[in-house]
Structure formats: C-alpha cells, structure tokens
Design a protein around this nucleic acid. Structure first.
Length: 261
DNA sequence: AGTACCACCTGACGGC
DNA sequence: TGCCGTCAGGTGGTAC
C-alpha cells in the first residue's frame, strides 16, 4: 500500500540505482495506466534520455531527465520498482521496462493496475492541476492547522484527501490519529488549535519513523497500531480491543479508549 | 463542501 | 473441487 513513506523508499531506490545512465530501450506494456500519452510516445520520449534527479510530492514520484522532462510515476496500491540484471524474463505484472546502457533494467511493476504513468514538462503545474496540497513532510505548521481547521467533514476524510496535505493514506492517517489520541470521526472544528498543532507534530514524527523503516528497513515502535490492523486486536497502549469502522468506504482502526469522541 | 456509492484491477481467504 | 462474496485500498466520477 504505497503511501508517502513507501514512495520515499522508491525514490531513494531509483536514485541509488538508475541515475546518469542512458535509457537504450523502453517497453511500455500498458495503455490505460498512462495519462495523456500513448505507450509509443512515452517509449519515444524515454529512449535516449537519462534520469538525472528525483523528486517526490505526496504519492507521486517525478524523475527528471536529460534532455529536460519528467517521468511521473504513481504506484496505486500495489506498485513498486525492481532494478536488476536480466537473466530471462521480467517480473510478473511488469507494466514498464527500461533498459540502461550498463545492461541493467528497471521494471515498474503494478499488479493491480491502479497506478499511473505520465510524461510531465512542468511538475508544479501538474501538481496544481491534480489539486494536490503541499507534501505532508514539507507543509508548514500554520498552513496545516488553518487548512485542516477550515474543513467541515471528518478529520480522517480530510487527511485522506490529498488537498490539505498530500501523501497520507489509510494506514498512516490511522496511525497519526491514534498517536495523537484523536477519534477518526471527530471534526476539525471540535478540536482546539493546540490539538491540531499536536497532530501536526505527531504526523511528521510518525512519517519520519515510517520513512526510516521504508528506506533502511527496521521495525515500527511497539506502540504503533500499524501492525495491528484487525478488529479486536489489543491496543498497544491500553490493551483494549481495537475497533473497526468504515469512513469513506475505508476500514478505519482505532482505540475507543485512547481516542475518545 | 460534504458524503455515498460505484468503478478501475487482481489475488487471498472464508463459507458452503 | 469450485463458485461466491468480501476485503485490501488509491483515486476519480457522479449523484445527492
């Protein structure tokens, strides 16, 4: 379930493996995961170029090229990258395959075709058109508190949408709310400024921890509910059974004791 | 400006 | 064995 931390993992992975090498062949094997470009044209754009830089905004990864351009990758729910020395076929569910001039390959794998690929000239404009808010790790506290405070719906729905901040998904919204002690059905209006500021700090701390895990491997702190997504699992803080409800059709786990309404 | 519901897609799992 | 419903969950469209 790629959310912001996983994307940060993909970004560093690509940066560590695939920069400054000419792309000698591009094989785009899907048509309708592409946004505004045909497979043929994307292949033509990529072939002969090299990746030079990486940038992440929310759950989008942008790879800057020479000559200038950007490959934009979204990973849906099941996407990832695989860099490898070919000795036969490509990984199962490979949707795009790039051959570099050193004999290595980069595969964009996406089992459920919920990801997207695009060719982007202007990254900032692309994010604006998608209505993406500031990245959750770069948003300023003031803006976060004000934008979130102005929402009328449930706080979980507001954080799940990518408009207030971009990058949070189902799992890390639940974690941030749990660690802050906020009930997922609460409305931002019910929360005072201090609580929203606390949520801001906790969200960033949680994401930092998750990024460390996604990039370097490691474990989540034992106090996290991340690994306990199951109804009735004990709360890591108070041992009460966790509850599951649906918010915007999404399974939401929380502790009724630690996150009172 | 919200929410509900549906769709995209694939695979795992439980019930019968 | 196999058929069926449900779930996983990011995103976008439509109807209310």
């Amino acid at each position: 379930m790629p959310e912001l931390p996983d994307l940060e993992g993909f970004r560093t992975y690509l940066a560590a493996t695939s920069l400054h090498r000419e792309i000698v062949a591009a094989d785009v094997r899907t048509r309708w995961m592409l946004e505004g470009i045909s497979p043929k044209r994307l292949q033509r754009e990529l072939t002969g170029r090299s990746f030079e830089s990486t940038h992440r905004h929310g759950k989008w990864l942008f790879v800057g090229t020479r000559p200038p351009g950007n490959l934009a990758l979204h990973f849906g729910m099941t996407g990832h990258l695989e860099y490898y020395k070919p000795n036969g076929g490509a990984p199962e569910h490979t949707r795009m395959l790039l051959d570099f001039d050193n004999g290595y390959r980069l595969a964009y794998v996406c089992q459920r075709k919920l990801g997207h690929l695009a060719w982007v000239e202007d990254v900032e404009r692309f994010c604006e058109e998608k209505n993406l808010g500031p990245d959750a790790m770069r948003v300023e506290r003031k803006r976060f508190v004000e934008d979130l405070g102005g929402r009328r719906g449930r706080i979980k729905a507001a954080l799940m949408g990518q408009h207030v901040v971009a990058g949070l998904g189902n799992v890390w919204v639940d974690e941030a709310l749990f660690q802050t002690g906020i009930h997922p059905l609460a409305t931002p209006k019910q929360l005072d400024r201090q609580t929203l500021e606390r949520l801001y700090r906790v969200m960033r701390r949680v994401l930092r921890v998750a990024i460390r895990e996604a990039v370097h491997g490691g474990r989540y702190p034992s106090g996290y509910i991340r690994g306990r997504r199951g109804e009735g699992e004990p709360c890591p803080r108070c041992d009460q059974p966790l509850e599951r409800i649906k918010i915007n059709q999404r399974s939401t786990y929380f502790c009724p004791q630690c996150q009172p309404e």
